[in-house]
């Protein structure tokens, strides 16, 4: 399984895809947080990163499907999946390896944003005047959210051999699970169904972790979410006729 993981990661790093998508993600982050006045942290005037953490999920909705779209779709199109499938590897190992490679890439995209934390830390009136606990919680939330989106992306890539379709399906599913459930719940305000719908959405759990409180319910939610979509992938790959 490590061999597949390594191959996937290096094939990202050896192609321009990774650098361009991550570069665009970071560029968009930087422009929105530091230059455009409406969303600028500097104009906002408070030493906190909330702007970044409410923006990042929406950028992830596009970044992560762009990373994951090729994982199975390309193998299907090129016919190379048969090489993997006839090696002594189980489907589960192949899926896990591809998933982890995408997660690592997502971390690469996230890592440079730590510089925002450092900047705010330095810029605060009385240096260090930032709620570090909340930032750590938010990063954890963002990481878990990234995992959920990656699982969606891997699944979307496994159902088609067209990367554009994989991308579009993944963007839609990410958007829907992130905020669609919440919007839908407004139809059933103050009813049990409404509360269930809110709790099905990613945003509710993301916000909860971002507050800096790590609740096992949220953790269980994200783990279940990832396993569910990787399970769907398993079904899509297992029933192959290609």
């Amino acid at each position: 399984m490590y061999a597949v993981f390594k191959r996937e990661l290096f094939s990202f790093l050896n192609s321009s895809v990774a650098y361009i998508t991550i570069g665009i993600f970071l560029l968009a982050c930087a422009m929105l947080l530091w230059f455009f006045p409406e969303t600028s942290i500097l104009d906002y005037g408070y030493a906190e990163l909330n702007g970044f953490f409410s923006l990042a999920p929406f950028l992830f909705i596009f970044l992560i499907p762009a990373i994951t779209m090729r994982s199975f779709a390309e193998e299907r199109r090129e016919g190379t999946y048969i090489i993997l499938a006839t090696k002594p590897l189980t489907n589960t190992q192949i899926i896990a390896a591809k998933f982890l490679a995408c997660v690592v890439l997502m971390l690469f995209a996230l890592l440079p944003t730590l510089i925002y934390y450092y900047s705010i830390y330095q810029l605060g009136l009385t240096k260090g005047n930032i709620d570090s606990g909340a930032v750590i919680g938010s990063y954890l939330g963002l990481f878990l959210l990234g995992n959920a989106f990656t699982a969606i992306g891997i699944f979307a890539s496994s159902i088609t051999k067209n990367q554009v379709i994989a991308f579009a399906v993944a963007v839609f599913l990410c958007f829907f699970t992130f905020s669609g459930f919440e919007s839908l719940s407004q139809l059933f305000e103050m009813q049990t169904l409404g509360i269930i719908l809110i709790n099905l959405g990613i945003n509710e759990h993301y916000q909860s972790i971002s507050r800096g409180v790590l609740d096992t319910r949220d953790l269980v939610y994200f783990i279940t979410f990832v396993l569910l979509f990787l399970g769907f992938t398993q079904l899509a790959i297992g029933g192959r006729k290609w």
């Binding site: 597949v4 191959r7 190379t80 002594p88």
Partner: peptide, 18 residues
């Protein structure tokens, strides 16, 4: 079918590792 973006040695190493 082969991974076209890989080098020969890299590919054979990968297969060997599996």
């Amino acid at each position: 079918p082969l991974y076209n973006e890989m080098y020969i040695r890299e590919f054979l190493n990968f297969v060997g590792e599996t």
